[in-house]
Design a binder for these strands. Structure first.
Lengths: 233, 233
DNA sequence: GACATTAGTAACAAATTGTGAATAATTCGC
DNA sequence: GCGAATTATTCACAATTTGTTACTAATGTC
């Protein structure tokens, strides 16, 4: 039936490749983002630090594997996590994996990594030496968050159930990596029907008290467009 | 030094997993998109058709593997190709791969699949039965193209070096999946400095001849925003 | 009470987008 | 040749969105 080139391997049995799942956990710290690194387990490796990684177990889904890796470091699930992509160029992975599937997770500020003293948060612009493959994953992680930011309510996951609009704006500024204009930000937020006010107010030291809001997305009326927070000057 | 849970496998050797690279080749046909399927090689499989797939060879990068798979079907490289993501949920893959890395490729209209008679183009809304994993990849492929459309000059790859603006608009409409307004489309195109006119004109049967343009992106002046073709009504 | 500080809004200019219609250059039918 | 049909290109203007400044409000500090 099928004419098959003699060079083509029959495709009934996929080859086995060494596979890792690597997780870049990002967390706000001050005005910037930090990423969680762990002391390298392989003492022969040139690098002293690595992104947390494991191989998926038999029958384990990639998402579940990433969640397990994150939980092992944090003791709890990250506020949000998503796959970045598969990395299978020839860049070296610290564990020698031929292919690595990268994930980004977001962790609310101030959650310390509780497991042992081998984990530390590094500013995304001040990473120590890590293997080239993991470096690429870490860099892609920040871009991935920014790309998803106006599609999915990522930012709200980093805040408590009720929050002030200033807090929300700070989170967005941190994730996008630049300042936003207050009036525009609020107008866009209002237009997108993402939040609703509660009747509580919080006063934090000086200045006028701020109203607390909660995340309460309304169904998009008439298929209106989403809000592109990235563009708000 | 490191306290290690007895449950944790030492992470110096990633496990081997069965891995496939699956390619969804998309091509315009009439007013819609079609995807290339191949007759299933595994005659025991429930499905008669499959997306072209292979396993990466030793040392082969994922991108290169995808390119090889595409070339084997088309005889030539697709106009554009990009990774979608890794698929490693428990959905069944026709080859039984634990993890599949999906790619989308775009192929100019009218390029037939030259290798044998075992390949066929199916409308993306009229796919025959394929394995659940591949079905997910095929569906993601269309979304991936749409998502990249206003970031990267995908559409130009499906046209010859010079083209009319009506041709270009048709491609965009096809990829986005809905009609665009003529004047808005041209205005946005102009604002983005993506094309420049040649001094040639083409008359195709009836109607006024159209000026030919070429793809000639100018450097973005002052960091202007890209054009969101998806939004043009 | 004057003032610094933070929150929330109003108002208006500037830019972008949505839309219909005018104008241009061709072929086709007669 | 002439008018209708067809396709291309541009214009014009309304509607909406965005950028910005400034104003009002409520609080703590001195």
């Amino acid at each position: 039936m099928r004419e098959r080139s003699p060079l083509t391997v029959p495709r009934t049995a996929p080859r086995r490749c060494t596979l890792s799942v690597d997780v870049a956990l990002l967390s706000p710290h001050g005005k910037g983002l930090t990423v969680l690194l762990t002391r390298a387990a392989d003492l022969r490796a040139k690098e002293r630090w690595e992104l947390p990684w494991e191989s998926p177990r038999a029958e384990e889904a990639l998402d579940d594997c990433a969640a397990r890796i994150a939980r092992a470091r944090l003791g709890t699930a990250p506020a949000w996590m998503e796959q970045i992509s598969a990395f299978g160029d020839r860049k070296r992975h610290i564990g020698g994996a031929e292919v690595s599937v990268g994930f980004v997770g977001l962790v609310a500020a101030g959650v310390p990594a509780p497991v042992g003293g081998d984990d530390a948060w590094f500013g995304v612009d001040q990473l120590p030496l890590i293997s080239p493959r993991q470096r690429e994953i870490a860099d892609s992680a920040v871009q991935a968050v920014r790309a998803r930011l106006d599609q999915s309510p990522v930012a709200f996951r980093l805040l408590p159930a009720t929050f002030t609009l200033s807090q929300l704006q700070e989170i967005y500024e941190l994730l996008i990596g630049r300042r936003l204009h207050k009036a525009s930000f609020r107008r866009a937020l209002h237009a997108a029907w993402l939040v609703e006010p509660t009747d509580e107010w919080r006063s934090e030291g000086r200045g006028r008290p701020a109203q607390l809001f909660r995340y309460a997305p309304k169904k998009r009326r008439g298929g209106r467009r989403g809000v592109r927070f990235e563009l708000l000057g």
